[in-house]
């Protein structure tokens, strides 16, 4: 059962800051990635893309800013 993280609620900033490695994020552009690093700065997550509208980025690592993240769930 995958758990959904409420990153938009009242505690959303803290939940985002604490997202664990391995959780899956869906971005506002439709890309999906797995968190491989969380600097815990409340701003960025390092993800590896498993899906991306630009197919050349599938498998690539990128730092995504919090406002790009639509939702997060455990795998």
């Amino acid at each position: 059962m995958s758990e959904t993280y409420n990153i938009k609620g009242q505690d959303g900033i803290q939940v985002f800051t604490d997202l664990p490695e391995g959780a899956q994020v869906t971005l506002t552009n439709g890309a999906v990635g797995t968190i491989i690093g969380n600097p815990r700065d409340g701003a960025f997550l390092e993800v590896t893309y498993s899906e991306h509208p630009d197919s050349s980025l599938v498998g690539a690592d990128e730092f995504v800013f919090f406002n790009q993240v639509e939702s997060a769930a455990s795998k």
Binding site: T28, P39, A43, F44, E62, F65, N67
Partner: peptide, 17 residues
């Protein structure tokens, strides 16, 4: 929120997308 990795490289900026 410009962010730099431990090699000093710029790897992200706020609103970069």
């Amino acid at each position: 929120a410009w962010t730099y990795d431990t090699k000093g490289k710029l790897v992200g900026v706020g609103f970069g997308n």
